[in-house]
Amino acid sequence: MSHDLSLAQSHAFHLCNDLMVPVTLFKSGGEFGVLPSDELDDKDDLEIVHEFFPWPAH
């Protein structure tokens, strides 16, 4: 499962930086998923693993 987590983290990191928006890595039903953070709802039954933020602009 650690391989699945590292793959999900990599995808979340790249999605965050491609879209330049915060994204949330979550677990639901034994699977990992990634969504832009503003698309998550408090009613969703998700285990939040980590939230990624885009790099600050220089």
Rank of each mutant, 00 (worst) to 15 (best):
G29D: 07
D4K: 14
L19H: 08
S28Y: 09
D44A: 12
G30C: 01
E31H: 08
V23L: 10
L40E: 03
M1L: 09
H14K: 11
S2C: 08
L7D: 09
D4Q: 13
A57R: 11
Q9I: 06
D41E: 11
S10T: 15
P54R: 01
L7G: 05
E51G: 04
F26T: 00
V49L: 08
D18T: 10
L7R: 10
K43A: 15
F13E: 14
A57H: 08
S28D: 10
F53T: 07
E31C: 06
S10M: 15
S37A: 08
P54Q: 02
V49Y: 07
H50Y: 13
E31Q: 09
F53D: 00
V34G: 01
M1G: 11
S2F: 11
P56W: 04
N17P: 11
A12I: 07
L7V: 12
F13P: 07
T24N: 01
N17K: 01
G33C: 02
F32R: 03
V21D: 05
L15D: 01
D44Q: 14
L46A: 00
A12W: 03
H3S: 08
P36K: 12
L5V: 05
V23T: 15
V34L: 04
N17A: 01
H50L: 13
I48M: 08
V23M: 07
S2N: 15
L46H: 06
K43H: 14
S37V: 03
V23D: 02
A8N: 05
V21M: 09
F32P: 01
N17T: 06
P54H: 00
G33P: 00
G30A: 02
F53V: 07
H14T: 11
P36C: 10
L15G: 01
F26C: 00
H50F: 14
K43I: 15
L46E: 02
L25G: 02
V34P: 08
K27C: 01
G29V: 05
S28C: 13
F53W: 11
D45W: 06
S37K: 02
H11R: 13
P56G: 10
S10L: 15
H58K: 13
Q9F: 05
V34M: 04
F52I: 04
G33E: 02
A8M: 06
F13A: 11
S28H: 13
A57M: 09
E39F: 06
D44E: 12
D42A: 14
L19W: 10
A57E: 11
G33R: 05
H50N: 14
W55I: 10
V23W: 04
V21T: 12
